[in-house]
Design a protein around this nucleic acid. Structure first.
Lengths: 343, 343
DNA sequence: AAATTTTGCTAAATCGTTTTAGTTTTTCCT
DNA sequence: AGGAAAAACTAAAACGATTTAGCAAAATTT
């Protein structure tokens, strides 16, 4: 295997200084008046010896690593894995590598991971946060580490963010359910209480219901801890069922909740949408071939990734981001399938 | 924000050499006879100044980064995202960070990524490969980069590998379908032709069928390129349908194929399992609540990850791996649900 | 008391790159 | 010819850690 070729080897074998080689390799040769002849000689030698720069040495010197981090609560959640996949492709095509971290909705684990990634001198971070306030990110802004928040945001935050119009999504879902004649409706989200996406979806949902005079009783606004989803849902559904007080429809606020809800309704042999209708948030390909297929509010995953990566890249490259662009809100779509249509 | 504290700052503020500080920090102080008093002083100061070592500088010096790479064909495929998630947790608990790369079943992209990760001096790689021969990995063994192949392997490979007993999985599937009375059976896998998992599943499947005198006609062994799945399956199913020559059962060789197949059968309004039974490979939580729920051969995802990570860590730490442990084959389970049971 | 060993510590080299601050040589101008 | 300007290149420092080789003082042995 032999030893690795360094910039010094190139320089020595050509009888020039390593400064010169470095300049050529970094496209700064013209600026420094290195003659075209010499430049060619260097480039040829680089090819001949198959020189590969030591990424670590360069990162050390420059404090830059051409690596970005993506933090999400759980990479095995389909929504996040698709986001991660899109970002990975974009990053790759721009010469960046991606480190993915799952935070398990754990605020401390997230902070710890951010600290670690910062120590590694990552160039930037794309984060779907589990924090309970904007404060850590305002600090992050001050510290100068480029980053973009996706999915979840906070009021009064100074970090750039990309999210969807969750409020509008909630409204769309509500109007559709109302239109189908459902009035007794439950909502299932996740704790903790500060997750902006969940809250916006709920308030949007409630606002549209209220316009028709429909109010959701508090015990029908269910929130389950991440990791307890299945149990909580099973428990609640059983409770409703035994009490003979089933809602006519359920709005589940992310794709895992939708899946868990479907699964447990089936276990109880409750007919969908005959006995209970299901409206989900986040589309997943298989929702179209479950029986019944599932109506959802769909997020533009590719677009979220594109905008977020663009925003991050521009920060890394040092361009200012105007206030207007800083907080992007993308539209959502409603996809109506069988789970909300009374036959 | 201030400047970063370096080891030199600690040394100066204490009036000792940075050698000493470094030794203390790396737990080599006792070996070098540094007095307990001094050690304590150093550790206290480190806390006081909140010193964080520069990971890059250390990586540069040591040629080690405490980072491992995970290469899979597509991180948004549920099977791989769960594998990645498990590995991430294991790595994290051992002080390692994970870089995930999707190779798109592209042999060249994979090689390129391995090169890049190697340049970054990653400590090791866990790979579900898209290569068409063992040769690149035998080279990788020679080059001394620790790595473990998962999922897919080759005959006569010198790299450690963890896979499941795909042949047995194929047999299980076949015996179940035979037992249910199906004889005219199709198989859907992916190209290219050298993917060991696909081939083993098919040969296992065929071997068990053959014992009962059942032969699959060649045109019923379908292979689709990655990325063309949906189209290929749609086309083939339509063709069978219009020719009035539907198989009685279909064995789909990974979870995406199963999904795509379900989706297209629904579009054609073909009843499952009434007209066609479906047997999948790889379990995904929602296969239990589709209607019909889907019978599958399930792989032990956590176990694959654990064994692979253990094998990798031991290589990184320099211990030899015996020939016996080098090629681990884990058992699979059959989960029988509705999609293969005639009502 | 001199020689040896042990204890506790440090100076300096090293890793591979980038960059600052020049130097040397050639060309041009008057 | 003498001085200024331009062209082409380079020496050495810097980044922050680890490690090799070894020094000085104290303790122990002879």
């Amino acid at each position: 295997m032999g030893k690795k070729i360094s910039i010094d080897d190139i320089a020595k074998s050509l009888g020039v200084s390593k400064t010169l080689v470095s300049l050529v390799l970094n496209d700064k040769a013209d600026k420094h008046g290195i003659s075209p002849d010499t430049q060619k000689k260097v480039r040829d030698k680089v090819k001949e010896l198959n020189y590969q720069p030591n990424v670590l040495a360069r990162g050390f010197r420059l404090g830059k690593t051409n690596t970005i981090g993506v933090l999400v609560s759980d990479i095995s959640n389909r929504f996040y894995s698709r986001i991660a996949r899109s970002i990975e492709d974009l990053a790759w095509s721009h010469g960046y590598t991606v480190i993915i971290c799952s935070t398990d909705e754990d605020l401390n684990k997230e902070s710890e991971q951010i600290r670690l990634l910062r120590d590694r001198k990552l160039d930037g971070l794309i984060i779907s946060t589990s924090q309970d306030s904007a404060e850590p990110f305002n600090k992050l802004v001050d510290s100068g580490l480029p980053h973009v928040l996706i999915d979840r945001t906070f009021e009064g935050m100074r970090s750039p963010s990309v999210s969807v119009d969750n409020f509008a999504g909630g409204r769309l879902a509500a109007r559709h359910l109302l239109h189908q004649g459902y009035r007794k409706i439950a909502v299932i989200g996740i704790t903790p209480d500060h997750i902006s996406t969940i809250n916006d979806r709920i308030t949007g949902f409630q606002s549209a219901l209220a316009e028709e005079g429909v109010i959701i009783p508090p015990q029908w606004i269910i929130k389950t801890p991440f990791g307890e989803m299945d149990n909580t849902i099973k428990g609640k559904l059983q409770q409703f069922y035994q009490a003979g007080a089933m809602p006519e429809a359920i709005f589940t606020l992310n794709n895992n909740l939708t899946s868990a809800c479907m699964l447990n309704l089936r276990k109880l042999s409750i007919d969908i949408p005959g006995q209970v209708a299901i409206m989900g948030f986040d589309d997943v390909s298989f929702f179209s071939f479950t029986r019944p297929s599932i109506s959802v509010i769909a997020q533009p995953i590719e677009r979220i990734s594109e905008v977020a990566f663009d925003l991050l890249l521009r920060q890394i490259e040092g361009s200012k981001i105007s206030e207007k662009e800083k907080s992007v809100k993308l539209p959502v779509d409603i996809i109506i399938r069988e789970s909300t249509i009374k036959s």
